[in-house]
């Protein structure tokens, strides 16, 4: 199948994935909006007032980019891991495997679905945030590119999780025990300048720190880390995870006996 036909296959998978997100919007879009509203009310409004300023901004403003990024991360990951795993579980992933669809198309198609959901939820959370605080975007390109690249990274992470998953429990392990803690410790609610040296240094090994701070820089113009370094690290993850996805699909890990 030539490149043009592969693009048709890609379009088919992307359309299928986006349709799925919209079809089950009550599961995909609404819950994060409610959760983030609660974050803004409890952490931003009630507790935030006592905290005062952080990083030169009122706490609610400081927290907003982190919460947007948190919702992008969990939703892009969750979308691909659930979609790909249920396709595996129900067996209809075979539709793609028996077809001459290239593996890069299968990866990009599912990742595009994850990115689409991540962006949709990110947009909804941004709108929710506007009810609570004033948001300005200092560097629009950086803000948008950070969100898209992060959604890419976690969509591919979700795909790798789904490839290895053998039962539904395996789908929940990484988000609960790895993704959640890393996100909360990734500077969503605080600046790492508040941390003792050791913990601040340890935090720099957390990739989510770079993503959260990258978006914070794009929106507020402040960051705990160098923005160039953030791009380099995120791009390394994009390329590395894409390679891992391709390697696993080419070997047939988790999808072929």
């Amino acid at each position: 199948m030539d490149f043009q036909h592969q693009l048709i296959a890609l379009d088919t998978i992307v359309t299928k994935e986006c349709t799925r997100v919209l079809r089950i919007w009550i599961q995909t879009i609404v819950p994060p909006a409610i959760t983030m509203t609660l974050y803004f009310i409890i952490f931003g409004n009630l507790i935030g007032r006592r905290i005062g300023e952080m990083g030169g901004f009122e706490y609610m403003q400081f927290m907003a980019p982190g919460l947007i990024m948190m919702s992008v991360i969990t939703n892009s990951y969750g979308n691909v891991v659930s979609s790909f795993y249920s396709a595996k579980f129900q067996g209809h992933l075979q539709e793609m495997i028996v077809a001459p669809t290239a593996n890069w198309v299968i990866v990009l198609g599912h990742v595009a679905g994850g990115v689409a959901r991540g962006l949709a939820v990110g947009l909804v959370v941004t709108i929710v945030a506007l009810f609570f605080t004033r948001l300005e975007v200092q560097h629009p390109f950086i803000a948008i590119s950070m969100v898209i690249l992060t959604a890419f990274v976690f969509s591919m992470g979700g795909m790798i999780n789904a490839i290895f998953a053998k039962k539904f429990d395996d789908v929940a392990i990484i988000p609960s025990f790895v993704l959640g803690p890393l996100t909360y410790l990734g500077g969503v609610f605080y600046t790492i300048s508040l941390l003792p040296d050791f913990w601040a240094r340890l935090s720099t090994f957390n990739p989510i720190l770079y993503m959260v701070n990258g978006l914070r820089y794009g929106m507020l113009g402040v960051s705990d880390i160098s923005i160039v370094r953030a791009y380099v690290i995120i791009l390394i993850f994009v390329v590395g995870l894409f390679w891992v996805c391709m390697y696993l699909l080419n070997r047939g890990v988790g999808i072929r006996e």
Partner: peptide, 28 residues
């Protein structure tokens, strides 16, 4: 046509078939 039923149970009948054509690079 595999032995086990492997349809996407939530897809409409029409979409099941159209999508399969798409995976083979057939324009919509």
């Amino acid at each position: 046509v595999p032995q086990e039923l492997n349809l996407n149970q939530w897809d409409k009948v029409f979409n099941c078939v159209v999508n399969q054509a798409g995976f083979y690079g057939i324009p919509r």
